[in-house]
């Protein structure tokens, strides 16, 4: 079965994965300090441009992946819009109470969620796990023991999915008497968890022994992939700084909403 996606390598792929990880965490934190809904609306364009043009994946795949994120946007925005508190009432019907404050707050939260999601998407679509772990050991000095175990684990996942499908067919053919109500849940868990876990535990143990037999150790080693910082990392930082600068200016000079701080 084909598990890997075909994509073109872009400059985002060539960034240093460990640096990317740290920098994205900083961006996540930074987003929490934007309280002006005008700014955060414009800020959304920064990751959106990257997702749309520079991940190297097919448009169709990107559109499919956007569906859950738009859902996230609307669900987080709408719950705040409908049920949030505020003084200037626009519309009230039963439990639903839309005020001016809750509307802007809702939009703000929606855009924040969308930003998180887009950044996460960029990271996931442009980072190979193997390179991430190589980079974590080399740049952040994560012990090889953990890094290589994670790489082995990533390899097991598609096998588990395949086994899950086999198991599903086998149980279908066997004919399961389905229990009712809550028992159905425990029954399903038992039917799937026991065989899948027992297979995976045995396999993980075997891989671990095989790795040790290949003289794997936790000490000094050479690397097949030498990951280091490059001009792409600098370029990305500049892009973000420039982007934030421009969107801040736009947000302050050309506000689209009547409110400038959702906390008030």
């Amino acid at each position: 079965m084909q598990w890997t996606l075909n994509y073109e390598e872009t400059w985002l792929h060539r960034m240093n994965p460990a640096f990317k990880l740290v920098f994205f965490l900083v961006l996540f934190l930074g987003l929490l300090f934007i309280h002006n809904p005008n700014v955060i609306t414009y800020v959304t364009f920064i990751p959106l441009v990257l997702v749309a043009f520079y991940t190297g994946h097919k448009r169709k795949l990107l559109l499919i992946l956007m569906i859950p994120f738009l859902l996230l946007f609307f669900s987080s925005a709408s719950s705040m819009i409908f049920f949030g508190q505020g003084t200037t009432t626009w519309w009230k019907w039963g439990l639903i109470h839309i005020t001016e404050e809750s509307f802007y707050r809702g939009l703000h939260i929606g855009f924040r969620a969308l930003n998180f999601a887009l950044l996460g998407l960029i990271f996931a679509l442009t980072t190979r796990p193997v390179l991430l772990f190589y980079s974590l050991t080399q740049q952040l000095h994560v012990p090889p023991r953990f890094a290589y175990s994670f790489m082995a684990a990533v390899r097991i996942l598609p096998m588990m999915v395949e086994e899950f499908q086999q198991l599903k067919t086998a149980l279908l053919v066997r004919g399961i008497k389905k229990e009712k109500g809550i028992k159905r849940v425990t029954q399903t868990i038992k039917l799937y968890a026991v065989p899948l876990l027992s297979q995976s535990i045995r396999r993980a143990h075997r891989i671990a022994v095989a790795m040790e037999s290949k003289q794997f150790h936790n000490g000094e080693r050479t690397y097949y992939y030498n990951t280091r910082l490059s001009k792409f990392d600098l370029f990305f930082v500049m892009y973000v700084i420039f982007g934030v600068g421009v969107t801040m200016w736009l947000g302050l000079e050309f506000p689209t909403y009547a409110i400038t701080d959702v906390r008030k």
Binding site: M159, R203, R206, I207, S213
Partner: peptide, 13 residues
């Protein structure tokens, strides 16, 4: 050491 199971002796993709 070469093991029995072809799917359980590699740690890289």
């Amino acid at each position: 050491y070469v093991f029995q199971d072809p799917d359980a002796q590699f740690c890289m993709p």
